[in-house]
Design a protein around this nucleic acid. Sequence first.
DNA 1: TACAGTAACTTACCCAAAGTAAGTCATCGC
DNA 2: GCGATGACTTACTTTGGGTAAGTTACTGTA
Lengths: 115, 115
Amino acid sequence: MEAMDSDMGPFCPKYHRAVELIGRRWTGAILRALLSGVSRFSALCETVPGLSDRMLAERLKELEAEGIVTRTVLPETPVRVEYALTAKGRDLDSVIGAVSGWAERWEAVEAASKP
Amino acid sequence: MEAMDSDMGPFCPKYHRAVELIGRRWTGAILRALLSGVSRFSALCETVPGLSDRMLAERLKELEAEGIVTRTVLPETPVRVEYALTAKGRDLDSVIGAVSGWAERWEAVEAASKP
DNA sequence: TACAGTAACTTACCCAAAGTAAGTCATCGC
DNA sequence: GCGATGACTTACTTTGGGTAAGTTACTGTA
């Protein structure tokens, strides 16, 4: 008898926390890159145009604190660091997929309305 | 022979534009409120805790410019304004649903890890 | 052994975005 | 005329994001 689905009330704290976290600047792009297999710090930096190493470090730290990514230091030289998604992070593919789908469905409309 | 699905490459400009737009501060909460039927300016303001009228006005203007909401002035007195989602805006329910779903699935884990 | 190079950060500084508070405009009931 | 109301503006302060340079620890070259 419990309603486990999203309640769709006008305001939901859980949803709000989530959308403000993954909606922060650059975070969406970083998550997509991680989902498609990019894992090293420098590779992530090069993947997302306009993203600085300072911001990348800050966002990765946030995501690590939220249990969305793990950080692994490879003791090579020079030292390399790999970032990987946890189960919680991989589960965000549903969100990234939904955004991608929406963006694809409506891109034509956007492009048509601004000549 | 055309791949219409999201390509899931490491970076996608369409996805990026979309996630930076709907991920801006407050926008996710405003969209959810609109989706669940809240339509008047003051009602939106009261629905989202912490949202100021200044920010609400700014976000609604952006969403209107993107063709996601429409603005209708009701010539009553005092004047009332109703905001409604366009088809493009209503289609965001897939995104909001995905975020809500993720947030519900992982809330327990979050709560458990911070005593 | 000094030196340039590399990866992954830090620190320091600056500006644009977000937050707070107050003001505007038209209209109404009193 | 006077205060109240709804939907904003305008003005100002604070915070977060952007740019650039410095740091650490090793390594390969001269």
